[in-house]
Each structure stands twice: as C-alpha cells, then as structure tokens.
Design a protein around this nucleic acid. Structure first.
Lengths: 348, 348
DNA sequence: CTCGAAAATGTTATCGGTAACATTTTTCTT
DNA sequence: AAGAAAAATGTTACCGATAACATTTTCGAG
C-alpha cells in the first residue's frame, strides 16, 4: 500500500519550504510565477493533494454536515438525504449519515460522535422527536454549544435552532377541502402512530379541519395505521370491518403514499372499485403515485426544498453567530385519479 | 461556540500525563485502579472523547469507507447504500457517499478526494463502468495502490480487486424459463441502455437464453428502454406500434421494476388486460411489486447481500494483503400475479 | 533493608498541514 | 549606488492524539 505524498515531499523536491507549497495550493498571489510553476509541476507529477485529516485537525472543522434520520431507505427521508447531499456538495461540504432506526431516540453516542468529528452542523429529520423530551433537550442544548443545529419537523423544544417545518395546517386542509368539493362528507384518516408527537400532529390537524368544514369527525374514522403498506392494509380492514356499511367513509386520507398503497390493495381485495367506491389521498407525492391504478392524488410536502434550505442555513450559521431561524414550507396538492376528480364524478 | 475539551485539558485537571489519559480511554490494563478512576471521573465530567481528526492524522486511516454510485435515490442503489451502511456501522466504520449521476464516469476529483481522505476502502456500484475503459483502468489502478477496492458489477477491468457480481445468467434464465413454462414463446426484453457495458450485458444474456430455449429472438423484441418508468412507457409503445398485432410478444421482461411500472401503465392505457393479454416480469423485487395491480413477478438480485459482502471483504482487506476476491450472488425469481401463474392460465 | 524486576507513569517525536511572524530578496526611488 | 519599501520565501509553533521509549514508583525476595 502506497504511502501518501506529503507536503514535505513536495517541498523538498521543489526546493522550497512547505509554506510556499501551501501558498501554491491555496492560490495565494504572493508567489513568484516561476516558483509557482516549478512547485505546481512537482504537485502534478505526484498528484499531490493535502491530507484532509491534517487540514481538519489544524482548522478545527471537518467541512462535513451530519444528517440524522430514522432510515434512509424510507422514500421520504431518502429524498431529504439526497437533496441535502447535493446542496452540501455544491458548497464544498460532505455529508455524513446517521440512522437512528424507527422510533429510536437520539442517542448519547451520536451526540458524542458528532462532537468528536467536529461536524460543521447537524440536520435532524424525523422521529428522533419521539424521544423523552428531557433527554432530547439536554442533548440538543449540548450540541448547540458546538455546532449549528437544524431540524425538519416541529421541534417543540426550548432550543434556538434552525427550524424548518411543513405546513401542517395546509397539509390537512388541502385534501379535506378537495374531497369536500367533490361532495365527500365522511372522510377517514389512516396514519402514523398516535404515540409519536411528530406524526400524531397530522391526525390532530386533520380532525380540526373536519370540524372547521363542518364535517363529521367520528373517532371511528381516525385510525392509527403506522407508516408502511402492510399497516395500511391492516388498518383499513380493521376500520371498515368495525363499521356498518352505511357508516363507511367515502374517502380516506392516509399518512403517506405507502399506507395508501396498502389501503388500495386491501380495498380492491374487498371487491371495491376505485375511485368510484372510495376516494383516496396519500401524502408525499412519491414517484410511484402516477403509476398506481388509479393514479394517486397526493400532498407534496417538498422535502427536498426543506432539506436544501436547512443545509443552506446551517452553512450560513457556521460563519455568523445567528443561531435561530424559522421557516414553514407550504404543502401542495397534486391531483390525480384516485378521487375521481377526472371522472367528473360527485357524491353528496 | 464551545472549544472542544482536549486530552491536555483532561491530563492537566487529572494531574497526569496525556499518555495516561490515552491509556484510560483505550482501556489499557497497565493503569493503577486509583488513577483510572480519577481520570475517568474527569473524562466523564467533561464528556471528553478524543478528536477524530487527530486520531485519523496520527493513525493514517479514517475508519471510513466510500461508496461510489450513480444516484442514491434510485431504489436499487439505495438498498446497496443502506445495507453497506449497517454493515460498516457494525464494524465501527462510517460510510461516505459519492454520487456520480447517471452515466457519469468516475472523475479524477473523486479519486483524489478518496486518497485525500485516506479512505479505508472504496465500493463502486453501477454505471461508473460506462466510462472510457482506459481512464477507468488508470483511475482504479492508482486507487488500488492506496486502498482496497470493491465493485458490485462486472468490472471487465484488469485490476485485482474485490469483485462481486450478480448472476447474470440466472437473471435472464429465470424469467425466460418461467414464461416458457407458462406457455409463452414470443418474449420481449425492454431495458437498460445498449450503450452501457453493464446493462447491455443483461440484454445479451437474455437473447442467449431465448436461443438456448429455442424461442424466437426477433430483434424487434429487444428494445433500449432506459431505467425509469417514463422510458418504459415510451419503449413499449414504440415496440408494439412497430409490430403487427399478430407478431406482438405475449410476455415482456423489463430491465427493472420501474420500467415494468411504466410498461404496465402504458399497456392498460392501450386497453390490454393484465396479465391475460400480456405477461410482465420485472427485476429488483422492489417494495412496491406486491402492490401493483396485478402484483409484479420480479427477479431479486439481492443487492443488500452483495453490499454486505463487499463491505466485509473491504474491511478484511485492510488487514491482510489479499487484494483479490470474487463472488457471484445467485438471483431469485419471486412469482406474483403479473404472469398469470396464479390463474392457472396457459398460452401455447 | 537493599536490590532488582515489574508495574505505573511520564516524555517526546510524529502524523500533515496552516499561518503568524521572521527573514531574505527584489525593486524602485533619489 | 545606497536605502527603504515591497515582494517573496522561510521558520516554527500549533492543531490533538498516539506510542515508542525513558523514567519513576512499587513491591517482593533475599
């Protein structure tokens, strides 16, 4: 295994001091053109580039941001990670991923690793917020002393940080309003876990919207349904089999598109025709929404934009001392076929 | 912003030398119990943990593996990345992602960054292989001098490295055999790009299988169809509209499940009933395969296992001087409804 | 009680850069 | 051509940890 060429090797071979090599590398103008060329030649010959660990040690930073989220393989978080990656890349930074797994709290190990690595900033996304409030506050407060912190989700935490949120009001209002316009009155919400602060919020917002629009908010229409397809299947089945057919909802809003996928499968299995027998609205506007049958109307929370903003703000916060920033991203409804809007079809 | 506590701070406060602090941290047994406790107390009080950059500089490694792939948001690569993450994690390593984007060659910048960062190893996955063969060889040879290199894909490169491949023969044979058993004879292949060494291989393998099983290998049945849903839609349309109805294939094998999704949508749009009018087989066995309508039969290449093996071998290669390793992972056919096998339905 | 080995702890060079400060060289003015 | 200012280059301490080697302490045997 080769030893890496160091700045000393270059300096010796070019017959200059290491300071001059650094100057050439950093494009410092205070170098005579002849010297510059000579040094550059040696650099090129050895394909020399300065060691990152040495630079980091000296500089006391890592040019790296951390992204802490439950699971990257989840499409929502995947989009956040990907967008954050490119935004960081654009700014000459790299990204380090930390997965906490479903429902797991932010661990002291991660906090200490973040500090050990001298991260330039951390972006928290998702269910870490389900942790014990006290521990969480301590962890974040501590972290905040070492690096800028950003969150994509309602932090509900007494910490000054970069706080980027989805517009939860619109996120509930948009589908309810759309369904109401199409004549639906009995609308169900399947999703999330009522135990998670982050996700139960969506359900609560949904109930509020129903009340505001004078629609029935029957508790039977509000079911805890997890985050994936299997949970979706089970949840509809549970909900519908517990209700007389004439009390069935005519539309279902789900926590996310995966749950919607499960719901659609289960409904077809039960012999219903979609969207005629049941309207569905998902959330996240995932890539497959246009390819389900019927295609799935969905709310887009624009996770990519939130991630990009978070990264931008983190990088800004490195320089300035402004520790606090807040932003709410509007949600958008993407209408497809799963509510029958395209069929000119209306209930009353 | 806090200054991070250093080993000197701890040493001073505990009244010992830095060497002793290091010993305590590293659980060296040559420390008197009384001293150990005293030092540990100071460490705990400051939540001290050694700086990663300093350790990396001193040790000449980074405890980090690089994963180079076209795009993480692609589900296939996402699974590779995720699996590699956990395997690395399990071994106390972290993972750094490099995205090359579609069809982009491995750039000299990435090579130099990998060396700069003193990566403990690199895992290449996917289309980097479409690069100019000469450049690629140079880049990899150079890299191989600094760190172990692993590839998940046929490298076709004169480099000793850890080479993990999907079983391309089975990957073509399984779907063709399945379809033949169901009575299909005219089978089409939609997928990949013929310009990419990596992906065209699949098409070639497919044609071979047709010949081996004595089925027609009409060139019209073999269409360049990209990697995503839109390309799938366009490709079937192009293929079918170019053929008399009586020459239509009765089954379509696609490069991946995304293409299959597009194909299914387009076929339905054309008024065909699936799987009766056309059988479909995808590849990758993605999470949504069980939720399409009809559910999608697919070939699983087990990318997670390949990624885990690659990471394991990279970590082993750090210690030993063995630079070469080869492994082929068998493919598996996951039968669902999209070929009508469940309907007891047969063509001839 | 002394000596020597073993145990405990300390000293210091090193990893590869960076930048403040010091020194040398060049250039220009008079 | 001398001298000062400007330009170019060099010297060196430091970033934080590690480990080889050096030194001191402890303890048991004789």
């Amino acid at each position: 295994m080769n030893r890496k060429t160091t700045i000393y090797d270059i300096a010796r071979e070019a017959g200059v001091s290491t300071a001059t090599v650094t100057r050439v590398v950093r494009r410092d103008p205070h170098v005579k053109e002849a010297t510059r060329q000579k040094v550059q030649q040696v650099i090129d010959a050895h394909a020399y580039s300065p060691s990152v660990s040495a630079q980091n040690l000296e500089g006391g930073r890592s040019r790296t941001l951390a992204v802490v989220l439950p699971v990257v393989s989840n499409l929502y978080f995947n989009r956040i990670f990907d967008a954050a990656y490119w935004e960081a890349e654009k700014n000459g930074c790299s990204l380090r991923l930390f997965q906490t797994m479903e429902n797991q709290a932010i661990s002291p190990e991660i906090v200490s690793e973040l500090i050990r690595c001298r991260m330039d900033g951390v972006l928290f996304a998702g269910s870490i917020w389900s942790a014990d409030r006290r521990d969480l506050n301590t962890a974040l407060e501590k972290l905040g002393k070492y690096m800028p912190v950003a969150t994509i989700c309602p932090p509900d935490v007494s910490l000054e940080c970069i706080c980027i949120q989805s517009d939860l009001v619109n996120c509930s209002r948009l589908p309810v309003r759309h369904l109401r316009t199409l004549g639906h009155r009995r609308i169900a919400f399947l999703g999330g876990s009522m135990h998670s602060k982050d996700t139960s919020r969506r359900g609560i917002g949904f109930l509020e919207q129903l009340r505001l629009m004078d629609l029935p908010d029957d508790p039977a229409y509000h079911v805890d349904a997890g985050y994936d397809m299997e949970s979706g299947e089970r949840a509809v089945l549970r909900m519908l089999s517990g209700l007389d057919r004439n009390r069935w909802p005519t539309a279902i809003v789900t926590f996310n598109d995966l749950v919607a996928l499960g719901v659609m499968k289960q409904l077809k299995k039960m012999g219903l025709t979609l969207p005629q027998d049941m309207a569905i609205i998902g959330c996240d506007n995932q890539f497959f929404c246009a390819y389900t049958d019927p295609s799935l109307t969905s709310v887009d929370l624009h996770p990519e934009e939130m991630a990009r903003s978070a990264v931008r703000e983190l990088l800004l916060a490195r320089e300035s001392s402004a520790r606090s920033f807040a932003m709410i991203r509007e949600a958008t409804l993407v209408v497809r076929e799963s509510c029958g809007a395209n069929l000119g079809f209306r209930r009353f």
